[in-house]
Amino acid sequence: HSLPGKKTTNKVVSHLVLVEPGEIYASPDLNLPDSDLRTLTTLCELINRELLITIGWAKHVPGFSVLSLADQMSLLQSAWMEVLVLGIVYRSLEMDNELAVAENFLLSREECRSSGLLNLHSVLLQLVRKYRKTKLDKEEFVTLKAMALANSDSSSIENVEAVLNLQDRLHEALQDYEREHHAEDPHRSGKLLMTLPLLRQTANEAVRTFCQIRLEGRIPMHKLFLEMLEAKM
């Protein structure tokens, strides 16, 4: 776990910073030729590991574990790609037109083009530019990520009130944090919330892309990734 970047009095935000997973590294199969096949295989293996980490992380989001198991599953099945996309976008803030899928796995526009990911590259970079312009910081990133999970608009929630409470708690935490750290811009939390539609749109595009890859059947995909993709179909 990484250490908090700055002190905040909001307990939810500081807890989310504390439970934020550490850096992730790709493990490309060097027996494969350096090709789109290797890029996509590396990417799919990475996503499977990220999913495992995301499920472990979700359990530490304050208020998540008290939901019923069915509702925890519904939130994760709806929001997992938004959580993953936000992580890639945050890692890519310092990059120059490259996507930092992992610390040692950067994807250029050209690599994305030859792997059939050009459209995904474009929409992800649109989100990167938006957050770069806003100067999204780590505390805001972790809070938005938890909000994406809680705000997944799943149609099969059993205890709607409990999920709404979770959303309210996270919203309050974000407002609290912005009052403390960005008092100069009273609209900042609203601005951040207004990025969530583009995050949803980008995640949907990513799901479409990987469903297509799955259909083509050229790339090996691990069981958890397949299960989560199937939940989106």
Partner: peptide, 19 residues
Amino acid sequence: TERHKILHRLLQEGSPSDI
């Protein structure tokens, strides 16, 4: 739950060996 057994198990128990 049957269709989403890995997620179910991960949330309930911990890490399975066949991910």
